[in-house]
Amino acid sequence: MTGTVAARISAHPFFAALTDEQRAALAGDAAAVMFTAGERLFDEGGSADRFWLIEDGRVALDMRVPGRGDQIVETLASGAVLGWSWLHPPYRWHFGAVARLVTAAIEFDARSVRRRCDADPAFGYAALRLFTPVITERLQATRLRLLDLYASPAELRQRETQQADT
């Protein structure tokens, strides 16, 4: 990644809706970070004190399931935002996260961003509007996965018949 963190934030489409001042304020809470493949970013239940914009690489969200190990629920690739549990109490991670490839990201100090949101409602509203589409997009994707997106009509009919027979 090239350029200062502030320049990278300014150039990234995720932050396009913010004013220059708001982007500059966010940059004050940001730092460039790298994770090695296999490095854990956070554990389920830990304090949600950071969030990341993934610039390059891949991160898996996982959950430890007794008897089944760490189950990956979703992977996030370049351009994705990682972490929104910092937005709402109790500010704890609902899942864990681990880098699956060498990953470059911009890391934000969520506590500081939260303080800015509380102190400046316009900034807080703008920040919330950045994250709402990410949250809704992932909710919709999860709902579609619940539908068993790749089942053909014939498979669904067969399943319904089997359920009716039992």
């Binding site: 990956i72 979703e74 992977t75 351009g79 994707a141 996965r145 997106l149």
Partner: peptide
Amino acid sequence: VTVDHADSGWGGEVGLVTALIKP
């Protein structure tokens, strides 16, 4: 390639196929 449910040997993406479009 992305899958809905990964096993321990899977090193690729997990999620909806539409998540592959932006990257």
